[in-house]
């Protein structure tokens, strides 16, 4: 069993070696990083948009504040419970997409 830093260093060397002798790999990696960042920003923007949309909607349309479901105000129900499925879903969709990006990267590197 090797020390964590040793493992990290080994991985670093492997990656560095791969970068040094393979030009196409470097370009593929850079496109992977760009794709991952864009994906993360999109998922983050979606979640924040949904979350901030709730209070904005409640203030913009005050009639919504009067609706109650099972004696509980609608706005309350959405903020205390309804937003969580949205958070989980964006995390789930993101995780699948990020893994797909990495799978594509592996295929491309193997072909290169």
């Amino acid at each position: 069993m090797s020390h964590p830093r040793t493992q990290a260093a080994q991985r670093a060397r492997i990656t560095a070696a791969a970068n040094a002798d393979a030009g196409p790999d470097d370009a593929i990696l850079r496109s992977l990083i760009t794709a991952q960042l864009r994906l993360s920003l999109t998922a983050g923007a979606f979640a924040v948009g949904v979350l901030l949309g709730v209070p904005v909607l409640l203030i913009a349309v005050p009639q919504l504040q009067d609706i109650t479901v099972a004696r509980v105000p609608l706005g309350w129900l959405v903020l205390a419970a309804g937003v969580f499925p949205a958070i989980i879903t964006s995390g789930w969709v993101y995780t699948r997409a990020a893994e797909r990006h990495e799978q594509r990267y592996r295929v491309l590197v193997d072909d290169a």
Partner: peptide, 11 residues
């Protein structure tokens, strides 16, 4: 560049 490659390269 090497560090960033390490961070983002899938195992």
């Amino acid at each position: 560049r090497r560090t960033l490659a390490l961070l983002h390269t899938p195992e």
